[in-house]
C-alpha cells in the first residue's frame, strides 16, 4: 500500500518532496511569528486550492462559488462550538455533510438540467450569493453584524477545542495539506480519477466508454465541497470571527482559486506552489511598500491581478508544469 503510493515517482522528485516536507515540519522552530502566520495563510490556500482542483482540475467543472462551502463549514462548526460547546472535531463531522449536501444540490440541479460551462460557473456564484444574503439575515449566528468565537491570549494549546497558539494551527493546516495531497494523488491514479480526467477532456467521449458522467461529476462536486468545508472550520477557529459579507463574498471564491490556477490546474503540486508564489510575492510587496512608508489599500490586489495576467499569458498551463520540465520531473503538457 505504502509502496504503491510512491510508484511512478522519480527519485529526485521524491528527494525534493522529502526536503520540502522536512522544511515545513521544522519551520515553526526556525521562523518568527510573522512568518509563521504567513506560512499558515499559504498552507490554507494550498489546502482549499487542492480541494477546488478536484472539481476543476480533475473533473473539469468550473466552480466560482467555493466560498459557499468554506462559509458553510465555518458557520456550522462555529455555531456548534459557541451554542452547544461541541468540539470543532465534532463540528467537522457536521460541517462535511452540510457542505456535501449543498454541493450535491447544486451539482444535481446543474447536471440534471445540463447547465454547463459558463452557465455552471454562474450558477455556483448564484448559490454563494444566496448564502451570503441568507446569512446576513440569519440572526441566530449574528446576521450581518458577525459571529464571534471566544478569544483569550493562550499560552497553552488545547487541540480538542482548537483554542491555542498559532503553532498548533500551523501543524493542523500542514496535516490537512499533506492528507489532501496524498488523497489527491491516490484519487488521480485510481479509477475515479481517471474517469474524472476523461470527463474533463471530453464528456461525450467519456460517456461512449461507459462512464456514468452524471454520477462521477456528482462525486467530484460532493468530495470537493466536503474537503473545502474543513478549510472553513479551520478558518473559523483560527480567525475567530465570521462575517457573511466577507466569508461568502465572491472575492473569496476568486482568491481561493488563484493558487491552483497560477500553480497549474489539474496538477498535484500546482495548488501548493501557487499558494507559495502568490502569498509570498504579495507579502514581499507589502513589506516593501511598508518600508517605503506607503500604505495603499488595493495595491496588493493590483499586484495579484498583474501576476495573474502575466501567468495566464506567459504560462497558460501554470507555473508547476514549467518548473517540472525545468527540473526534469516530466511535465505533463508539451
Amino acid at each position: 500500500m505504502i509502496a504503491a503510493l510512491f510508484e511512478g515517482v522519480l527519485r529526485h522528485g521524491l528527494a525534493l518532496l522529502v526536503v520540502l516536507f522536512a522544511a515545513l515540519l521544522a519551520a515553526p522552530y526556525i521562523v518568527n511569528s510573522y512568518l509563521l502566520a504567513i506560512l499558515i495563510i499559504i498552507l490554507y490556500y494550498a489546502y482549499v486550492g487542492q480541494a477546488w482542483n478536484i472539481m476543476m482540475g480533475f473533473a473539469g467543472q468550473l466552480s466560482l462559488g467555493h466560498a459557499l462551502y468554506v462559509g458553510l463549514g465555518a458557520y456550522t462548526a462555529a455555531a456548534l462550538f459557541v451554542k452547544f460547546g461541541l468540539s470543532p472535531w465534532i463540528g467537522m463531522l457536521a460541517a462535511i455533510p452540510v457542505a456535501m449536501t449543498a454541493g450535491a444540490i447544486i451539482g444535481f440541479l446543474a447536471f440534471r438540467f445540463r447547465v454547463g460551462g459558463v452557465y455552471f460557473a454562474i450558477l455556483t456564484i448564484a448559490f454563494a450569493e444566496f448564502a451570503r444574503v441568507g446569512f446576513d439575515h440569519f440572526t441566530w449566528v449574528g446576521g450581518s453584524s458577525g459571529f464571534f468565537l471566544p478569544v483569550a491570549n493562550y499560552t497553552t494549546s488545547d487541540l480538542w477545542t482548537l483554542r491555542g497558539r498559532p503553532v498548533m494551527f500551523y501543524y493542523l493546516i500542514l496535516t490537512m495539506v499533506v492528507i489532501a495531497f496524498v488523497l489527491c494523488r491516490i484519487l488521480l491514479r485510481s479509477r475515479i480519477g481517471t474517469f474524472w480526467l476523461a470527463i474533463r477532456e471530453d464528456e461525450e467521449a467519456a460517456r461512449a466508454i461507459g462512464i456514468d458522467t452524471f454520477r462521477y461529476k456528482m462525486y467530484a462536486v460532493v468530495l470537493s465541497a466536503g474537503m473545502t468545508s474543513l478549510a472553513g472550520v479551520f478558518f473559523a477557529f483560527y480567525y475567530n470571527n465570521l462575517f457573511p459579507e466577507q466569508v461568502f463574498n465572491i472575492a473569496r471564491s476568486i482568491e481561493l482559486i488563484l493558487a491552483p490556477i497560477i500553480g497549474g490546474i489539474g496538477t498535484l503540486f500546482g495548488p501548493i506552489l501557487g499558494a507559495f508564489l502568490l502569498t509570498g510575492l504579495s507579502e514581499t510587496m507589502h513589506a516593501i511598500l511598508q518600508g517605503l512608508g506607503v500604505d495603499v489599500p488595493g495595491a496588493k490586489q493590483v499586484f495579484y491581478g498583474l501576476c495573474l495576467l502575466f501567468v495566464v499569458m506567459a504560462l497558460p498551463d501554470g507555473v508547476w508544469p514549467w518548473v517540472a520540465r525545468k527540473l526534469g520531473l516530466g511535465g505533463r503538457k508539451p
Binding site: 485510481s190 479509477r191 480526467l197 477532456e201 471530453d202 461525450e204 467521449a205 462512464i211
Partner: peptide, 28 residues
C-alpha cells in the same frame, strides 16, 4: 468510435486506454 475522432487530448495514449480499461476493473 466517433466519425470525427475524439481521444482525450491532454492525456497520454496509455491514460486514454486506461479510462476504457477501468470500466470493468477496479484495480489500477
Amino acid at each position: 468510435t466517433f466519425q470525427i475522432v475524439r481521444p482525450f487530448p491532454a492525456l497520454t495514449v496509455e491514460e486514454n486506454v486506461m479510462a476504457g480499461a477501468f470500466l470493468h476493473r477496479k484495480e489500477r
